[in-house]
Amino acid sequence: MRLVVDLNRCQGYAQCAFLGPDVFRLHGEESLLYDPVVGAEKRDQVLAAAAACPVGAILVDGPGVREVDAVVG
């Protein structure tokens, strides 16, 4: 599963780090670092964090989106 955090919007209160400790972590006092691509076993953590983020800064793959099937060339 893929995710991205809009760090302009993020307020660094770390709810995500509490709910998804294997994916999100604070670096210093308010810098958020996270893993942009995680395995299925962390999916629940990511979804819980995304739902709890007070500013809606965590964007994840939409339900049922397919991988990009690239035509190379």
Binding site: L3, P36, V60, A70
Partner: peptide, 19 residues
């Protein structure tokens, strides 16, 4: 190679990558 961006929705596009 593990910073791929999520897709919020299906975009139903033709991707010509590497071109």
């Amino acid at each position: 190679d593990a910073t791929a961006l999520p897709l919020a929705r299906d975009v139903d596009a033709q991707w010509r990558l590497g071109t």
